[in-house]
Amino acid sequence: MKVLVCISNVPDTTTKVKFTDDFEKLDTSNIQWVINPWDELSLTRALELKDDASTGVKSVTVAHVGLAGAEPTIRKALAIGADDAIRINAEPHDAYYVAAQLAEVVKAESFDIVLCGIESSDHNGSTVGGMLSEFLGYPSVSAVSGLKIENNTLVINREIDGGKETVTVPAPVVAIVQKGIAKEPRIAAMRGIMMARTKPVKVVEPVAVDALTGIISFEMPEPRAACKFVDAEDPKQLIGLLQNEAKVL
């Protein structure tokens, strides 16, 4: 079985986001770029599956739609343990555009399991994985918090609103992954970092696809009113404020 992990390159999650003066774009100065947290967990799980010979997973590839600037993030995925990488050399215009590009890669290299994160921490779309599965005509399972392989069939835990389900789906499949899939993201060791330098990164040119959406501008949330402090000895006062001022009790 061949596994593909789709990775998105996002600002570090502690970044205080700032925009350009016209609020049309992210101000990328001083931003540290990282692998999207859910993609990092997907990669970790994919590598765990490969480590276990009984799963039949032979290779783990990462794919990214983006320009050469994302190369360090791709190398990081290789350092963590991916065997090789594919970079589709294009600005990721919108989720539809990205999913359409990834679909070409999956078709060309016939991956059995495709893992995507449930959302990217920048645009919070939660859409690429589902779109990719529809482009491919593969089944998809979303909000995946556990994934095992039994005789070519995937045994998946997914979160439903108000509970959990264990489902089975035959490969090929797209799994859209959230927290729980792996305990901690795997960290690159020195040896991994050395090896990553020589691992293959295939650069492919994009196919022609129109983006369906475009961001016109960003906006910061309204600043919150300053905190009103209540004496620790007198929580009754707090209850009064919540009841009469905020009117939420």
Binding site: D94, A95, Y96, A99, I118, E119, N124, G125, S126, T127, V128, G129, G130, M131, S133, E134, F135, S140, V141, S142, A143, R158, E159, I160, D161, I176, L212, T213
Partner: peptide
């Protein structure tokens, strides 16, 4: 809805209907 089920279905619909998504 932008919940687990909505997130699972909306993107598939997007490709089927060639419809852009505003998520969340």
């Amino acid at each position: 809805a932008n919940n687990n089920v909505g997130k699972a279905l909306a993107p598939r619909l997007s490709v089927r209907l060639k419809a852009g998504i505003g998520a969340g």
